[in-house]
């Protein structure tokens, strides 16, 4: 089981953490809500919990809880720019259907 971070995304996380001054890595997760059932959680992580799963790529720790990992397994997280927008993008093979706005999805 794995979650991958592209080099672009890793760079972005590193610079975010260094600007912020603290934080051990990037926490990914899912939770129920939104128009299509589930939504991604993308947060800076200050503390790793006992049952958390940790991956490390390009010197960045990616932390997730086991329940979320069920829905995120195989996901690649990228940092891209689309037009005037920039942000993180989840390429998740488990997604069957996402809502028009792309902020939530179902599996």
């Amino acid at each position: 089981m794995t979650i991958t971070l592209t080099e672009n995304a890793a760079q972005r996380v590193k610079s975010f953490l260094s600007t912020r001054g603290r934080g051990v890595g990037l926490r990914l997760g899912v939770r129920t809500s939104g128009c299509s059932g589930m939504a991604y959680v993308l947060e800076v992580c200050d503390e790793i919990a006992a049952d958390d799963v940790v991956f490390e790529q390009h010197d960045v720790k990616v932390i997730t809880d086991p329940k979320s990992l069920l829905y995120l397994d195989g996901t690649e997280v990228d940092f891209t720019r689309e037009g005037l927008n920039e942000g993180f993008k989840f390429n998740n093979p488990n997604v069957k259907d996402s809502c028009g706005c792309g902020e939530s999805f179902s599996v």
Partner: peptide, 16 residues
Amino acid sequence: MALLQISEPGQSRAPH
């Protein structure tokens, strides 16, 4: 899909 930003712990914005 939408592009996401990193949030503070516990502050992830609920999707609309």
